[in-house]
């Protein structure tokens, strides 16, 4: 086992522009944010970047701002801040549920929202949340800023749409209005582990309990974070009876294509996608209606 990382050059960026310039200039560079996935990867020899650009000292990248059209989350916002935030707990239960189930309190003290999303492991929890909430990812690169839809962002395992000289600076979540509710359910072998599977569900319902919009994101259900699109569109315009939930969760299961690994065989994970989708939708529905 390799527990000492390979050598790398190290530099501290003091602004987003400087980070982008460094990422552009330096050979084989990686962004060091919370480091809670990158450093273990480097220790185990899965990653050996030649240079690291430390963004932890860039000011004003750690924020939760709901003063505008959306909830804006700075890329350097620590997971522990999401857990402790009253705003997140009250208005964004899906994000709160997921944050509380990421690793453990020590890892959450350093791990960041942006890092969890950009690492793009199929087992990371926030990508599914971003997919379910139709988040927008704001990135800065040498030719300026661009805004990417979450549904396009996750290209493959550990691969996002970001170029190697682009930095994710912010994630924008549509503001939760009346009638919105969400939930994240995660099946894990033990506290703090990656998900066997996880399901993020986000609903908006009208006064009659009919779904106006539905978002479902799946963790560890494929080689990358995926959206259960068929289940989403099938649910729009329906009230969630047990029969409807059963059909929707079957559709989500059929979308999933998990890998067999140490966390379980593929068939078991598929079956669990169905169970968790059913439960997550039910809880999200309850929360959405409770908010009316």
């Amino acid at each position: 086992m390799f527990v000492i990382p390979d050598r790398f050059s190290y530099t501290v960026a003091h602004s987003v522009e400087e980070a982008v310039e460094l990422l552009h200039t330096l050979e084989d560079s990686k962004v060091l944010a919370g480091g809670q996935s990158l450093i273990p990867f480097m220790k185990l020899g899965y990653a050996s970047p030649k240079s690291l650009v430390d963004i932890n000292r860039i000011p004003n990248l750690d924020y939760l701002d709901d003063s505008g059209e959306s909830l804006k989350i700075g890329a350097l916002t620590r997971i522990s801040r999401l857990c402790d935030s009253e705003l997140v707990a009250k208005d964004y239960p899906l994000i709160h549920d997921a944050a509380l189930q990421i690793a453990d309190p020590l890892v959450r003290n350093l791990g960041t929202f942006g890092g969890n999303v950009c690492h793009a492991d199929m087992g990371d929890d926030l990508p599914a949340v971003c997919l379910a909430m139709n988040a927008e990812m704001v990135a800065s690169g040498p030719s300026g800023q661009r805004v990417l839809a979450a549904k396009d962002f996750f290209v493959d395992r550990f691969t996002t749409l970001l170029a190697s000289d682009e930095l994710l600076t912010e994630v924008r979540i549509p503001k939760n209005r009346r009638g919105c509710g969400g939930a994240y359910l995660k099946l894990e072998r033990r506290v703090g582990d990656y998900a066997i599977v996880g399901v993020a569900a986000q609903l908006e319902v009208d006064g009659d309990g009919v779904c106006r919009s539905v978002g479902i994101g799946l963790t560890s259900a494929s080689t990358k974070p995926i959206k259960a699109s068929e289940a989403e569109s099938w649910l729009v315009g329906k009230s969630l009876s047990d029969e409807v939930l059963d059909k929707a969760s079957t559709l989500a299961m059929n979308t999933s294509n998990p890998l067999s690994d140490i966390r379980g065989p593929a068939e078991y994970k598929k079956a669990m996608v169905k169970v968790l989708t059913h439960r997550a939708l039910k809880l999200a529905y309850k929360r959405a209606r409770g908010g009316l």
């Binding site: 050598r7 790398f8 050059s9 190290y10 501290v12 003091h14 030649k50």
Partner: peptide, 13 residues
Amino acid sequence: MTALIYPADAKVR
């Protein structure tokens, strides 16, 4: 501010 790049074998103080 120009960022200081520490080479891989640097002894950083």
